[in-house]
């Protein structure tokens, strides 16, 4: 559905995107992750045909984004960051206007507008002026606008930014639902959202793609796929030296004493090895009072931090 080869974008000397390449297949829900200023929005603006690339080839549904821009724009639904809308229009009026603009045939306009209003739960505000709607509703109007012409591909730039947890959940469910029939590329900072909705993740940092994999595989990349949390009553230095002496342990981090003499240690083992028993043996041999020993799976957040921090 999306084929990007060697895409670069330079703004007055600053290289926002540096020769990235990636593919998105039909039916995928791809999460586009990266810190602020990494080039996510720029890439999405280029894909949507708003900005021209400085260099590189981009094809969407087989059409070149630069030379066949109108054909591409007919096939994508793009929701820009912060969802700009005509605040003076009513929801119904706005959606009909957008449907007409996006070449939905006259007979189908009414039907399509009803469908997207249903999908985005906009029925109760259909006659309200957009300027009076709350952020959550505006976000949903933006989403309804992006899908009103039933595009093959949806490009959503931070669809859940500024929403409350309930709204985030409802938008997430909506995206999951849409993913059954559409290809979706979405950017976000909320990593739990990506873990729950996306089939694949692209991590971009400083204009370069750092990783492209399923959320589950990405977390495995992080230091052995997880850590062990240990809480004992013992001097921190002692714990570090004795545990690091074990052959299968790579690193021990002491988290500051949380409660009197109790300390917490985060233990990273070599990939694929369970060291909980070894740790327990060390604790018993030293007679350290033990309060907690638990394995923690790496989160996508840790993967993200590891991939994007230097």
């Amino acid at each position: 559905m999306i084929e990007v080869e060697n895409l670069s974008k330079t703004y007055s000397g600053f290289r926002a995107v540096q020769g990235i390449s990636f593919h998105v297949n039909k039916g995928e829900i791809v999460g586009f992750l990266g810190p602020n200023g990494a080039g996510k929005s720029t890439t999405m603006k280029i894909l949507s045909g708003y900005l021209p690339p400085t260099d590189g080839n981009i094809r969407i549904a087989g059409f070149d984004v630069v030379t066949d821009s109108l054909e591409v724009r007919k096939r994508i639904g793009y929701m820009p960051e912060n969802v700009p809308l005509y605040t003076d229009m009513r929801v119904n009026e706005f959606l009909r206007f957008r449907a007409e603009l996006k070449k939905v045939t006259r007979r189908k306009i009414k039907e399509r507008v009803e469908i997207v209003k249903d999908l985005c739960h906009l029925k109760d505000v259909e006659n309200k002026i957009i300027g009076t709607l709350s952020k959550g509703y505006r976000q949903r109007v933006g989403l309804a606008d992006a899908m009103v012409h039933d595009p093959d591909l949806l490009i959503l730039d931070e669809p859940t930014i500024g929403l409350d947890p309930n709204q985030i959940r409802s938008v997430r469910d909506l995206i999951k639902d849409l993913g059954k029939h559409h290809t979706i590329l979405l950017s976000t900072h909320i990593l739990s959202e990506v873990e729950l909705t996306c089939t694949r993740v692209l991590v971009i940092n400083r204009g370069k793609i750092e990783a492209s994999d399923t959320p589950a595989n990405l977390t495995k990349l992080v230091r052995g796929g997880g850590s062990i949390l240990l809480e004992v009553k013992a001097p921190g230095l002692d714990v570090t030296t004795k545990l690091e002496a074990l052959p299968n342990i790579e690193d021990v981090e002491i988290i500051l004493p949380s409660d009197g003499d109790w300390i917490q240690a985060k233990i990273f083992a070599k990939p694929g090895i369970d060291v909980r028993e070894d740790v327990y043996n060390v604790v018993r041999a030293n007679n350290w009072p033990l309060r907690e020993l638990a394995r923690r799976k790496a989160t996508l957040e840790e993967a993200f931090v590891e991939l994007t921090q230097d």
Binding site: K45, S48, Y50, L70, R73, Y78, Y86, T87, L101
Partner: peptide, 14 residues
């Protein structure tokens, strides 16, 4: 100012 130009020009219009 509102950024709606982006929404407008990413629709299939010249």
């Amino acid at each position: 100012k509102l950024g709606t130009i982006e929404m407008l020009l990413t629709a299939p219009v010249r």
